[in-house]
Design a protein around this nucleic acid. Structure first.
Lengths: 249, 249
DNA sequence: GTACTTTCAAAGGTTCTACCTTTTAAAGGT
DNA sequence: ACCTTTAAAAGGTAGAACCTTTGAAAGTAC
C-alpha cells in the first residue's frame, strides 16, 4: 500500500483565522457592534503571529464585516452587513464596462418607470410629503438661478423610497452614484431645469392620485428625455475628443 | 497667522499601495495573466515594508484581482475579475436579511419583464439559438428526472444577453447569484419544472416573433408564479421555525 | 471648584529581520 | 538516459520594536 496522501491543509494561516472569525460572526458569537479582542490577544489565542491575524482582519475589514479604530477605545468591531457591502464592489466592477453610461441610463429607464408605478400604489402620506419637499427644493434652487440638481436627485430617491422596497432604493442609489462618478452631472447642466420640474410635478400628481399607469408613463417620458440629452452630450463629447485627436495628428 | 492645518494623509499605507496597484490594473498597466514584481521588489519600489505590501496584496487577492502562487515560477498574478468573486462572500449573509429575498424577487420581476420586451426587438439569430439551446437543455434534464435548473438559469441569462446591454446582464447575474446561493434551489424543487419549461417556450416564441409586449407579458406572469412559490415556501419555513421555537419554550 | 494642560496607556499601523515551506529547474551522480 | 539531490526564488510565518492616534485620568493654574 503506497502511502496515503493526506489532503493536506495547505491553506494559509490567515485564511484559516479569517474563516474561524467569520464563522463566529455567523454563529452570533460576535454580533454587530461587538468588539473583538485586540490583535495581540487574538494572536496569542490563535497561537499565530500578529501578521497573520492582521491579514485576516484586513481582509474582513475590506470585505465589510469589520471596522477598526485606533486610539483609546479603539479596536476591531463587528459591522452590520448591508446590501451596500455588496453593491459597492459591484458598482466598481460595472464601472469598467465600456458603454456603461448609456446602458445604465437604459437600466434606469426600466426601473424608475416601474418604481413610479409601484410608488403610486404603496406611497404613504409621509412619502408624498417627502416627494413634495423635493419639488419645493428644486423650485427654490431654480428661482435662485441654480439647476436644482439636489432637488432633482431628491425627487427620484423619494419616489424610490415610496415603493418601500429596500432593494429598489439601493439599486437606484447605485446607478445614480455610478453615473455621478462619470459625468452625468455635467451632462445634465444643459437641461432645462424648469421643464424637468414640470415633469416631476406631473409625476407627483399621478402618484398622489394613486394612478400607477399614469405615473409610470410620465416617468418613462421623463427619463427618456434625460437619456436623449445624455446621448447628445456624449456624442458632442466624442466628436470633440475626436476633433482634438485629428488636431494632434 | 495660525499654522495652516494640512488635510493630512491619514490613510493607511497598505490602502494607498492597494489603490495604486488597483489603478494600474484598471489602466491596463498590468493585464490579466501578468505577473507582478515580487513582494520584496514591490516593497522596495514603494519604499514601504513588505508587510504593508502583503496586506494590500492579500486584500486584492481576496477581492479577486490577484492570485498568488508559491515556489519557483510562483509570484503574484493578475486575474480576470468576475462577478462571482464579488458576490460569493456575501450571498450567505444577505440570505438572512428578512425581506431581502422577496424584495429581490420583486426586483427581478421588474427587470426581467422589460428584458424580455427588449430582447424581442434586439435579438439576433445567435441569441435565438442560445435561448433555444437552454430550452433543450432543460427538457433533457427533466426527461432524465432532474428539475432543469441549469437550463432554467441559462434561459434567463440568454434572454438578458439578447438585450445586448451589459449592465442588464450583470444586474440579472447579480440578483440571480444572490438568490441562488441561498435557497432558491430548494424552493424550486417542488415546482412543476414542466410548467416552467412551457412558460419558457412561449416566451421564446414571442421573442422569436419580435413581439415585445407579448414577451414582456409572458415573462411577467412567469416570474410572478416563481415569486408566489417563493412566498409560500418562505411562509412555510417561517411557520416551521416558529413551531420549533414554541416547542422549545 | 472649574477649566485648561499634560501625561499616559491601549490599540491599531509600520517596519525590520529572520526563518520556514513550497516548488521547479538545473546540476550531478548512477 | 534516468533518477536524485540541491539551490534559489517566491510567498508564508514569526516576533519584536517602534510610531501614531486618541481618549481618559492626573495634575496644575486660576
Amino acid at each position: 500500500m503506497t502511502a496515503r496522501i493526506e489532503p493536506i491543509k495547505k491553506s494559509r494561516l490567515s485564511e484559516h483565522v479569517g474563516n474561524i472569525l467569520l464563522q463566529m460572526i455567523k454563529d452570533k458569537v460576535y454580533i454587530p457592534g461587538d468588539q473583538l479582542p485586540s490583535e495581540r490577544e487574538l494572536a496569542e489565542q490563535f497561537q499565530v503571529s500578529r501578521a497573520s491575524i492582521r491579514e485576516a482582519l484586513k481582509i474582513m475589514e475590506k470585505t465589510g464585516y469589520l471596522e477598526s479604530r485606533v486610539g483609546v477605545g479603539g479596536g476591531t468591531f463587528v459591522r452590520e452587513i448591508t446590501l451596500d457591502t455588496i453593491i459597492d464592489p459591484f458598482a466598481e466592477f460595472l464601472e469598467s464596462e465600456d458603454n456603461m453610461v448609456m446602458e445604465m441610463l437604459d437600466f434606469r429607464l426600466i426601473i424608475e418607470t416601474e418604481f413610479a408605478r409601484i410608488a403610486a400604489v404603496q406611497r404613504t402620506t409621509d412619502d408624498l410629503n417627502a416627494i413634495s419637499a423635493s419639488l419645493d427644493l428644486m423650485q427654490l434652487d431654480i428661482a435662485a438661478g441654480g439647476i436644482g440638481l439636489v432637488g432633482d436627485n431628491g425627487f427620484h430617491e423619494a419616489v424610490a423610497r415610496a415603493t418601500h422596497n429596500n432593494v429598489f432604493e439601493k439599486m437606484l442609489l447605485m446607478s445614480k452614484s455610478l453615473l455621478n462618478k462619470t459625468r452625468e452631472t455635467t451632462l445634465r447642466l444643459k437641461n432645462q431645469p424648469k421643464s424637468s420640474l414640470a415633469d416631476h410635478r406631473a409625476i407627483y400628481q399621478a402618484i398622489k392620485e394613486g394612478d400607477g399607469d399614469k405615473a409610470a408613463s410620465l416617468m418613462h417620458q421623463h427619463i427618456c428625455k434625460a437619456r436623449e440629452n445624455a446621448r447628445i452630450s456624449l456624442r458632442k463629447a466624442a466628436a470633440l475628443s475626436e476633433g482634438k485627436q485629428l488636431e494632434n495628428s
